[in-house]
């Protein structure tokens, strides 16, 4: 199987994030691999391992696909060191500030060009927090959408993928045929740490850089625009008490004072 994993480099979740001219300031913050995408990489490795592995010339290959600035190659290296085979980085100045329509268009066009069998995503990027890209890629490719998976099983022979979907609607069992887009929730597995061997091997793996001209697509002007972004005043310093046996009573007094009961 040709497996693709969509990964994104995001600002470190602990870093203080700022908006500059209506866009998230991505230059002056530490950037990391979106942690939810680590579960997608791990699941791709497990699917490959269950069906003959992803060694050179073997039954499966795992290609990372990322849209982002050149700097995203740092996050890609980490993902390669976990065991993926190669990567495609779509970097283009016209993509600065790309919205979900543009991102899904770019990712879908790369996926269509390489005709992948299985596309695995995380459920959410910790910066955009939209949880829409996997569904939008499935829509653009016209293939099965198997998202929010807490379990995935693939049968390459019958080309069938089955998942357990976990969401506000409860638990659903669903399936579809390859090619399919899967997104995974963090309950699905425990991502592996890159081994020393993996880190060394990753240095020799190829990151193919492409721009939009190579892909033969262009991006329309933005579908949504930020009018302004205003920092909210930090929460006013709260009251803190130490329980000396009366903590519960003080708490109730606070509730009553604030008219919360």
């Amino acid at each position: 199987m040709k497996i693709a994993v969509c990964i994104k480099q995001v600002p470190d979740s602990w870093a203080e994030k700022k908006m500059v001219n209506g866009l998230l300031d991505r230059v002056n913050v530490d950037a990391v691999l979106n942690d939810l995408d680590e579960y997608a990489i791990e699941e791709a490795l497990r699917v490959a391992e269950a069906h003959g592995g992803n060694d050179e010339g073997g039954a499966n290959s795992i290609t990372l696909i990322s849209m982002g600035p050149d700097r995203a190659s740092e996050a890609i290296r980490k993902a390669l060191s976990m065991g993926a085979n190669s990567a495609i980085l779509i970097s283009d100045l016209t993509l600065v500030g790309a919205d979900a329509l543009a991102t899904s268009k770019v990712l879908a066009s790369v996926i269509a060009r390489e005709s992948f069998d299985l596309i695995i995503c995380g459920t959410e990027s910790t910066d955009a927090r939209m949880s829409v890209i996997p569904a939008m890629i499935a829509e653009r490719l016209g293939c099965a959408q198997l998202t929010f998976a807490s379990a995935v099983s693939v049968d390459p022979t019958s080309k069938k993928v089955s998942i357990t979907r976990m969401s506000e609607a409860g638990v659903e069992e669903m399936s579809g045929e390859l090619p399919a887009v899967v997104s995974v929730v963090e309950k699905i597995n425990e991502p592996r740490y890159p081994s020393f061997k993996g880190i060394m091997a990753a240095k020799k793996k190829t990151i193919h850089s492409v721009d939009l001209a190579t892909l033969g697509i262009s991006i329309e002007s933005a579908y949504s625009t930020v009018i302004d972004a205003i920092p909210r005043p930090p929460r006013a310093g709260g009251v803190r008490v130490t329980d000396d046996g009366n903590g519960g009573d003080l708490l109730v007094a606070f509730l009553a004072e604030k008219k919360l009961i």
Binding site: R235, V239, V241, T242, D243, G245, G247, G248, L251, F254
Partner: peptide, 16 residues
């Protein structure tokens, strides 16, 4: 927190 109790939840919650 707007209101924080430093204490054991097993003591504070039943009283509250």
């Amino acid at each position: 927190a707007d209101f924080g109790v430093i204490g054991d939840l097993f003591d504070v919650l039943p009283k509250a």
